[in-house]
Amino acid sequence: MQSMRLILVTLLVAVAFVPSVQAEGVQIADYLGFAWETGGFLPSEAGDVFSFVGVTTDADPLLGVDLSQEEVTFYVYDLVSQGELVDNPAAGWTTILYSGGTLEMYRDAAMNADYGTYPPNGTVPSTFTDGTLLLKGTFTSFYVQIDPTGAGTYGGNADGVDGELITTCTGCIYTWGGAFTQDAGAQIPDGYDLQLDGVLEIDPAVRTQSESAWGAWKASYNSSNR
């Protein structure tokens, strides 16, 4: 009987991981925030450390968050610059590749996120890291590109290592968006270097772990082990 229960649990897990309707889209959060780098940006010297805090402006229902009642915040840290290079001389873009780095995403009913000025400061990162950990990922790649106007893009891949949303998965997190300096006409609080406007995506194969599906799985597991 115990082995039968084990088979059933395994089947339930398999069902939970089957990708749901692809047309739903894999983008779970649209966010906007600000980044800074030790020593300033640009230039980005090898060894400079890039950090970022942001707040979600639109969330997929998969997150199960009502943004009028809770805020979803981001904190990205320990991204180490490999130095800047002119990757595409014809276009004049400056490219910076980063190593390391961790992304954390929290839900928080206090709704107290405050950028302040000249981070880190009394509210950064503390008001972006309170609440419940939704997602933690370690970057496997991250880049920033800036064109001659001061506008650019960024993107990065990460493995999921912790959080309410997903626990572990490989290459399952992707974030991309626009990176804008003040030269591009972006509003940026004093002491920050870039405005980042981006989207967080989760691989369809793991994003099906919605709270209800995960809860159902845990309940099944618990009952099978009584």
Partner: peptide, 11 residues
């Protein structure tokens, strides 16, 4: 502006 990175990840 469209830029294709000439180094990995060639984005």
């Amino acid at each position: 502006s469209v830029s294709t990175m000439l180094i990995p990840p060639y984005t």
